[in-house]
Design a protein around this nucleic acid. Structure first.
Lengths: 247, 247
DNA sequence: CAACTTAGTGGCTTTATGCCAACAATAACA
DNA sequence: TGTTATTGTTGGCATAAAGCCACTAAGTTG
């Protein structure tokens, strides 16, 4: 009976033709964030094809059934094509699907968020046509393709939300970095100032950074600062309490 | 030029035929949790069709382009069909997609998690064929269809993770409830005992419940307990700190 | 060496939770 | 009508992690 059922299933699969069923369009989009001169930026691409040709949009597109083993691989591929980066911080944010967001009909997009340091990507991004880093506020104010404005807002919210109890902004910095730089990254992401002593105590007592030397002070003025490098596995670290509830 | 482009796009859309493009299969699955006699249960359905016929699986299936306006509507529909419940707590968990999870080829599933009280659903669920509440541990130990074991694990993890800083388990109880019942729901979800005083202080000072009377003690023994009903908007409440870090 | 600038710390306050013991309200029972 | 058992509720101090603010440290510039 089990084997009978198995033969049954085999026959079903042999006769199965994907063309017979109409699936929604499935895309993957990535909101790639970085810090440039201390400000949050997001990577946008000007659409070369219909629909919404000419509009700026999040990098993304269809899944390549031949190339992509899984959704996250598809997201990583899009990201690699636009930035050259192969191992960024990459996290799934959410999936949006309905019959109105794309003129072609029912469509589904899986949204990812990525973080990376700017310096190593700058040259590559410059070389990719119709692709550039936008200051986040400008991007949010702009009229993006499809529902990408909402997608961007969702990614941004995930970023700040998670920054409250993790060390996500680490991934937007070049290593090594100083604690002041890290704090500024947090402040930019959270959109609010943090208290120096509390911040340093929180980060240092979490034991997630290795001290790796000293940096000359920025602008040549002031005391040199200790440099740190993230320890392995720090993306898993979750604080028991949220940061920045004072004032 | 703008209108030229617009006409251009119109022509593109007129000529667009979805059949020309091969999209992955898209399904929506829902992990529906409830408490029965204090223990976490999940709703499973025995598959009536190939593939994986006869295996138990999470309720779910294809999007109905005619009926479903959006992904969340599709999830709500599946849930309504199996439980009769129209307004449960429903949250998107994640989306899994690859070329190996379904024998028919590249497939994507959007996983939702739902919470509901048991009593109002019991009769309806009983009346639906091939559908029943499984104790969570049994379900996890069972050989479910496709990758539903992993999906179930992901939903379960979201549930306990979020319970640490919200009041999610409220949605698994009939209203009104006592604080002891709520605490027991938390403990079952978290898999660890909580301290009575801390728990009560935390919940009460959050000001998210309305006191609505008194309940006779369970089993007729002991002091009667105050009854509470959740205030509107309590799903948004997030505590600044995680619960249950002691011992 | 004084003035300025940025990094880092001391130490007290505040907030939220952990912990444990006491107290309160009911039912069953002697 | 106590007495005991059972469950709900609260008091009060200890502890953990943050907030706050002033002060010290280590450089540069002139």
């Amino acid at each position: 009976m089990a084997s009978r059922d198995h033969a049954d299933e085999q026959r079903f699969l042999d006769e199965y033709n994907p063309q017979d069923y109409l699936s929604p369009l499935v895309t993957v989009d990535v909101a790639i964030f970085t810090l440039i001169e201390g400000r949050l930026h997001v990577l946008l691409v000007q659409r070369a094809n219909h629909p919404e040709r000419g509009r700026w949009a999040l990098p993304g597109g269809f899944i390549d059934a031949g190339q992509d083993q899984a959704l996250s691989a598809a997201a990583a591929r899009k990201l690699r094509q636009k930035t050259g980066v192969t191992a960024p911080y990459l996290e799934q944010v959410c999936t949006v699907g309905d019959n109105a967001r794309d003129p072609r009909g029912w469509s589904v997009t899986v949204l990812y968020m990525a973080l990376m340091a700017h310096a190593p990507t700058a040259a590559f991004v410059d070389s990719v046509a119709d692709t550039r880093w936008w200051p986040l506020a400008d991007a949010m104010a702009h009229d993006l393709a499809f529902d990408h404005r909402q997608l961007l807002a969702a990614a941004r919210q995930r970023l700040s939300g998670k920054t409250a109890y993790t060390v996500l902004p680490v991934h937007t910095l070049d290593t090594p970095f100083t604690l002041t730089q890290l704090q500024q990254a947090f402040e930019e992401v959270l959109g609010a100032p943090l208290e120096k002593k509390s911040f340093r105590r929180r980060i240092l007592s979490a034991d997630i950074l290795d001290e790796v030397g000293e940096a000359p002070p920025p602008g040549g003025r002031g005391r040199p600062a200790a440099l740190f490098r993230p320890k392995a596995g720090l993306e898993d670290h979750a604080f028991v309490r949220v940061v920045g509830e004072g004032k």
